[in-house]
Amino acid sequence: MTTDRLRRAALARRKRSLWIAVLLAPGLIVMGLFVAAPLLSAFRYAFYSFHGLAPADFIGLRNFTEVLTEAPFADWTWRALRHNGVVFAALMVAQNGLAFLIAFVLLKALPGHRLHQVIVFLPVVLSAVIVGFLWKLFLHPLFGLVNAALALVGVQGLPWLGDERTALGAIIFTNAWHWVGFPALIFLAGMQRISKETLEAARIDGAGDWRLMTGIIWPLVAPATTIVFILTFIGSFNWFELPYVMAGLNGSPGGATDVLGLYFYRTAFGNVTSGLQDFGHGSALAVLMFLFIAIVSGLALRVLRRREIQV
């Protein structure tokens, strides 16, 4: 009797496992074919030299040492990485700082806050290609909206995307305009999770807006900050669409807007004017980018999680 029940339980368990396997299989197959396999092949290609489109000789780590230490590749790699770092820092301060302030204002539920919430979030739903194209027109030195507006107040505008000193900043600004609604929404959700009693208690104790924001809300939205930090980091170091649309594959002018995504793309798939494809160096760059982003995000996640406070 007992063995009969045990056998039935084992059968039910096996049936359940089979079901789980059947349900998981489609997802696993798709992920395996379209995510894991290309990733692994990129790892493999990074160790080969390429003549044409087929991997030719196994050359060990030479592709890696060349992109990291040998001129002119190394200059381009470090310049692109430096630009990615600038993009990350600028977005953290300008885009996410502004998003935090916007979220704080929206939290106050002033008249019309729902409309403003929609307006702030609206650009996020646009595609990066459209945003890049629009802002390229807005920033045009001759007939752009920005310089026309500046001219009205008597300021002579610059060729924003054509000047080495302003090109990267102009694209960062566009990115902030495009994405500011997203961190604002995450911060707002975090702020709305804070209990009303906590905020009211602080108010009764005489805390003003600044004290409330820095002393109470900032530490309590730490989980939201973690998410925003990690997403901004990954987005900044994988930055591709906006600089591609606004500055082209070369990161013009003169590489002033060159970032790792552009550098990887034109190395692996060929430049606009010279279609030479170099999958060896390209794959090495892709692997380095993957490792850098994975390791730094992992470490940042650990550090940031530790400072989170559970309410």
Partner: peptide, 8 residues
């Protein structure tokens, strides 16, 4: 025919 090309 090799990287970096003269053009780039």
């Amino acid at each position: 025919y090799e990287t970096p090309t003269g053009s780039e």
